[in-house]
Simulated scan of single mutants.
Amino acid sequence: MRRVQASPVPLAYGGHPDHAADLFLPAEGAGPGVPLVLFFHGGFWRAEHDRQHVAGFARALAAQSGCAVVSVEYRRVGGGGGWPVTLTDAAQAVDRLPRLVAQAAPGRVDPARVVYAGHSAGGHLALWAALRHRLPDGAPGRTETPPAVLGVLALAPTADLAWADELGSGRGAVAAFLGGAREKVPDRYAAADPSALGVPAGRTVVVHGALDEALPVAMARRYTARVGATLHELPGAGHFDVIDPGAAAWPVVTEGVRTVVAGVEV
């Protein structure tokens, strides 16, 4: 089993207190120039959930995948986030953190080999970040060219915002995030919903539990079929099993990272 450095390296990608991130480096034996995973935590974009609940996940992923892992914070609903701030924070994070990581750990990480990853609402942000070149003109975070990313590992992602809103997922979390239902703010859904934006840059791998109690596995099935992504559906797994290093799902998660890095099934 690989090891990870004892303490994460704190990073700041902007001027707000929530423009913060923790860098988990694999032990020196992992070799120079390891890939970088930028990971967005979940919690339905709400302020009461922060990156601390995925610290163990990030540490284990760095230790067992051989990648450097950055656990990214961002402004959330109830703490100055929501539309469009949460999205612009995510865009700023992915644009700035690879360079900051390279400065913080010279030679240890290859900033040109980046994977976006996330769980639940964070899975939404990871997918969205890889779709910024497909956003409507004038949308927050839009880029003219595809992001320089190897791909996305999305764990139980909120991949279809309109569907999640119809379901009332997270006690109306999507409407709280975007400021209303799709009928009220259609332009926001058009600029934020991965299911409406096409195929993300790089390779996309989705891991979703068949017994997910927060977001139905049917959402992952429909999304991956629509964009041609790989789906690993886990029998017997719930919403949080995919971020639990002690769960049976864990080998599938670590293999998902390697698949995105390699660009082929491994």
Rank of each mutant, 00 (worst) to 15 (best):
D137P: 08
P194F: 01
R203W: 12
A93C: 14
A102D: 13
G151H: 12
A102G: 05
E213P: 04
P146S: 09
R113G: 03
P146F: 12
P111M: 10
V185T: 07
T158L: 13
L131F: 08
L178A: 07
R113S: 09
A93T: 12
V114T: 13
L197W: 01
A121L: 09
A214F: 00
A210M: 06
R99P: 05
L127R: 02
V115D: 08
R188M: 02
D160H: 03
S195G: 05
G180C: 03
D187Q: 13
A129R: 10
L131T: 03
G118T: 07
D187L: 08
P111N: 09
G123R: 01
F177G: 01
A121G: 09
L155H: 07
R171L: 14
G138H: 00
D95M: 14
G170N: 05
D193V: 00
S120Q: 06
A112D: 15
R96N: 13
G198N: 03
G123Y: 03
P146V: 06
G138D: 02
G123H: 03
V199E: 12
G172S: 09
P194R: 00
Q92I: 10
G168N: 04
L215C: 02
L125G: 03
A175H: 10
A176Y: 13
V217M: 01
P98K: 11
E166W: 14
V115G: 13
R99F: 11
V207G: 05
V199M: 09
D193I: 00
A214S: 07
V207M: 02
G172N: 10
W128M: 03
V101E: 11
L155G: 05
V205G: 05
E183R: 15
A154R: 04
A148I: 10
A218T: 12
A176R: 11
A192G: 01
L167N: 04
P216A: 00
D137F: 06
V149K: 05
A112N: 14
T204Y: 05
G138E: 02
G118R: 11
A210N: 04
L150S: 09
A164R: 08
A91P: 04
P98G: 12
L155M: 07
R188E: 03
Y116M: 14
G141Q: 07
H124M: 08
R108S: 12
L125Y: 05
P157Q: 00
Q92L: 15
A190N: 01
G107K: 08
G151F: 05
A148Q: 14
D95R: 15
T158V: 15
R182A: 13
D137N: 12
L125F: 05
L135V: 06
A112Q: 15
Y189M: 00
A129H: 09
A210C: 04
E166F: 12
R203D: 13
G122R: 07
G118C: 11
S120Y: 03
A192T: 01
H133L: 04
R134S: 06
Y189S: 00
G209R: 01
L155Y: 11
Y116H: 15
G170I: 04
D110I: 08
R113L: 10
L131G: 03
P186Q: 07
A164G: 02
T204K: 03
A117G: 06
E144Y: 09
S169E: 11
V109E: 14
P186I: 02
D212N: 00
L197Q: 00
